[in-house]
Design a protein around this nucleic acid. Sequence first.
DNA 1: AATGAATGAGTTTTCATTCAT
DNA 2: AATGAATGAAAACTCATTCAT
Lengths: 200, 200, 200, 200
Amino acid sequence: MDKAEKYDKPDKCAEKREAIIQAALELVAEQGFHGAPMAMIAEKAGVGAGTIYRYFENKDDLIRWIYKNVEERFVEVMMQGYPEHGPVRERLVHIGTALVRHLINEPLQLRFVEQFHNSPYGVDHRREKIFGQQKKDIISELFDEAVAQQIFKPLELAILFSLFFGPLVDICRDHILGFIKLDDALIEQVVGACWDALRR
Amino acid sequence: MDKAEKYDKPDKCAEKREAIIQAALELVAEQGFHGAPMAMIAEKAGVGAGTIYRYFENKDDLIRWIYKNVEERFVEVMMQGYPEHGPVRERLVHIGTALVRHLINEPLQLRFVEQFHNSPYGVDHRREKIFGQQKKDIISELFDEAVAQQIFKPLELAILFSLFFGPLVDICRDHILGFIKLDDALIEQVVGACWDALRR
Amino acid sequence: MDKAEKYDKPDKCAEKREAIIQAALELVAEQGFHGAPMAMIAEKAGVGAGTIYRYFENKDDLIRWIYKNVEERFVEVMMQGYPEHGPVRERLVHIGTALVRHLINEPLQLRFVEQFHNSPYGVDHRREKIFGQQKKDIISELFDEAVAQQIFKPLELAILFSLFFGPLVDICRDHILGFIKLDDALIEQVVGACWDALRR
Amino acid sequence: MDKAEKYDKPDKCAEKREAIIQAALELVAEQGFHGAPMAMIAEKAGVGAGTIYRYFENKDDLIRWIYKNVEERFVEVMMQGYPEHGPVRERLVHIGTALVRHLINEPLQLRFVEQFHNSPYGVDHRREKIFGQQKKDIISELFDEAVAQQIFKPLELAILFSLFFGPLVDICRDHILGFIKLDDALIEQVVGACWDALRR
DNA sequence: AATGAATGAGTTTTCATTCAT
DNA sequence: AATGAATGAAAACTCATTCAT
């Protein structure tokens, strides 16, 4: 073993971990939890079956960790280029458009999240809604602000979220399944419709 | 065979079948497919393990049969008192209100359907959208008509369905989880918001 | 219930019993013991599952009873037209020819017997050789006589039986499976060959 | 890795596989397929139930693999010391004698093969006659040659095989069951009798 | 006497997890 | 640290037999 390898080691560790995550993500997304046994995840990741347990305590642990990661990526994407000081509509349209674009580019992530939500794993996380904690606040703030300014209907946050995000996730699924064909113009129209649902 | 027998015999059979269905529905709704092994369903239904296979070919068969039944009940509920000749808005509000009322009264059915949709079982049924075939046409016709009359936005049916049904199902889930508290007034407001999303 | 039925009853009983036997024989012959569950036998026989247990104590009992019956029919056939006072060769040829003709006319019986011999059921009966007890003696006597007269090789009865009946049963199986095509001339030739094996 | 490991490691693997095969062979031979559930095979082999599935895809796979192995051993034994250039009779006697000696030394193998032939497993293999493909040709060639030289009766190969191998297998079974007591002299006599059946 | 619905022990097979190497 | 063979508990499903009708 030479120096190069010595320095690689930490990387190899991270790489291995990432490979496991990616393998599990793909398998669960494509085959469901039934179709993703640990041995298969290990094989797809190119590691030994026992190795997974060096990085994750459990299958549960692995799954939950992936979920959290994917969730975070969703928020990151929505915050990228977020027009913090723009008008409410612009900010909302940015969020909706960014989310939809991301979901249809990453069908595995969408499928995984849906598998997760409706499974024993997702029971706990349900209450945390679609989005994480820290950054979600920015989105919550936007909605709160819009309600305060009497731009949005005077409804609870949870309901407003459902009105906005519910249809967007649904149409992404339909797109992935080939049921509809989304393009930029159509995305804009749908986001616009969701805006109409929110607007007073 | 006297009257007593006439009324008893069929009941015993149907009762047992119904007990199995109810047991499976509850277990799947509460614990997911993982948490609903055939032996547990049998025990909860108060029958022998082998008995289930007299009524259903398969676990798949059982699950699919329950799904179909639940689906049909959804449609029935929406069609009950449907103001066939009323204006579009009235008809739509009826459907939305009836659906929400039913779902929050039957949380097990909602949980079951969600489990089903995101599972190997649901892959096939996915394209059939949320609702059945025969009666769905009445709903589809309503939407088609509303588009033709330029009351709704000129979007595909799948998208219009997502805009309308997506949020409604979501808020029912939130209600069941105790996140929000739906009452008649609130249901009306939300259905109204969904109407706004559809309206031109 | 009128007289006619009263007198039929015993017949009906026998008919039912016979139907069960025939159904079981066919199923076992065609599908093996694995492919002949009691419920299927009952259905094929046109009786209730429980009814079989009025006629036979057990599945074992049923199977063993069929075997005995079939065995007896084999002996009967071989004894039909048996030239009791003819020369040894004539008697032997009669037996061999009659057996082969019967087996290829009743492939189900042959298949059944073979299934039986090689199965837990057959372990006990093995020692009884291919044929029953009472009538077998006539055949045994023939062989004994032929040995005493120094027509046959001086070998034990069991070995002489193997030399004679072994190939005959084998060629019948081959015929049934379509491997060879037996006709009267060929049967005679093969029986003749078996005779050669026995002859001093 | 030192020598010890080199020789140990492969052995452990092979040993376990061999133990499974041996356990299954014995159980099937002694109790039939009914009496050889996977759990019992595992226990007898001293391995976990799941372990069998690391070595064999299926129960079918296991059974078929054992059959193939046993079949090959039969052919090997018959070919060992085969007097390729000797006269027809010598070659035939070698084959018959070798087969009988092997079968009475390995009663489990004989019982297994018989179980196999008359079972769902054996249906496919039936047409391949008693012996394999590659090496069988040597035996077939011998028989063909003997027919061509007008040493054997002018009959199909399948019939000649039945005349020769049928009785031999039968007497081995009788010997194993204690019905007769084979020794070298007797084996020679019986093989001679089979030769007589074949000879013109 | 006849039925056939109900049963539950028994079968094959899978898979998360462990542990010797 | 990494491995992957081994495990055994648990799953779906079958079927001989019983028993209320």
